[in-house]
Simulated assay, not measured.
Amino acid sequence: MKLAGISFYPVKSTAGHEVTEAEVQPWGLAGDRRYLITDERGAVLTARQEPRLLACVPVLDGGVLTLTGPHAEPLTVVPTAAMSTVHMGGVAVEVTDCGDAAAAWLSGLAGRPVRLKWLDDPTRRPVNPLYGRPDDRVSLADAFPLLLTTTASLARLNDWIAETALELGEEPRALPMRRFRPNVVIDGVAEPFAEDEWKRLRIGEVEFRVTKGCDRCVLTTVDTETYRKGKEPLRTLARHRKREGKVWFGINLIPDLVPGTFGRIAQGDPVVLL
């Protein structure tokens, strides 16, 4: 098995970037989901509610974030000193406001008042203690530092989607991996969904613990080109991958790093189960 793809998402629920190598930090890939968007009430806003957020392409250069999109000129983000609180998974997290200019830029894209927030200190948010250790941390991802998927599982899912479409007289359409927004994609897995049983693995020089499978939401149904919601993959996952009232695709990881240390991964790195 080998590492076939690496992606990170500077702003939660906006466009991501595929890279050939990345630094792995205890709370996730460097630059991954350190920013998020809140609505007029201060609640976290995602592309589940506003799919047009996926049209925002955030670019990180030397730690400086620039927002690009189809509706306005690029904007360089300048965080302020103002702090506020967002709630994620029942945990209150202190974040820094990124100013009125960023708020206006994103509000123009979303079509409603929103603000951009920055997690200036990534050690601030703990992982759910049911699945992690006391010193485990996560940035602004939904729950865990990294999400892993495999090409074998996507191929099987796309076969199932084609079967469903033919049964219903619809045009089959394979889904790209970016619908699932993984951080790492593994190739060469012998069986689809073999990752369901993994407990520990090493990618290149970095070891990871598997916490749990990833239950999927309506965001996976949003076409990343048209920003319209469809029925897949949730319709087909519900036929083949439903348990505990949820549907599943991919697994969540926590890097097994000594506090204060980092690692690196690169495309082509060997993947070894431990």
Rank of each mutant, 00 (worst) to 15 (best):
L3Q: 11
A4I: 01
A4D: 14
G5M: 02
G5F: 00
S7R: 10
Y9V: 08
S13Y: 02
A15C: 11
A22K: 08
V24R: 01
W27Q: 01
W27E: 06
W27A: 11
L29H: 07
A30L: 11
A30F: 01
G31H: 07
Y35F: 15
L36T: 15
R41C: 08
G42T: 06
G42H: 12
Q49V: 15
P51V: 06
L53S: 09
P58Y: 03
V59M: 01
L60Q: 05
V64A: 10
V64T: 11
P70N: 09
P79H: 11
A81H: 12
A82Y: 02
M83S: 13
T85K: 03
H87S: 12
V91K: 12
V95T: 11
D97K: 02
G99R: 07
A110N: 03
V114K: 10
V114T: 11
V114M: 07
W118P: 06
P122V: 14
T123H: 14
T123P: 02
N128P: 12
N128A: 13
L140C: 05
A141M: 11
D142L: 10
F144G: 13
T150H: 04
A155Q: 13
A155I: 07
L166C: 05
R173I: 02
R173E: 09
A174D: 13
A174R: 12
R181M: 07
A190D: 12
E191T: 15
E195Y: 07
E195I: 02
D196L: 05
G204D: 08
E205F: 00
R209F: 02
V210Y: 05
T211M: 10
T221K: 06
Y227M: 14
K229Y: 03
G230M: 09
L237G: 11
K242I: 00
R243C: 06
V247S: 08
F249Q: 09
D256C: 07
V271A: 09
L274D: 13
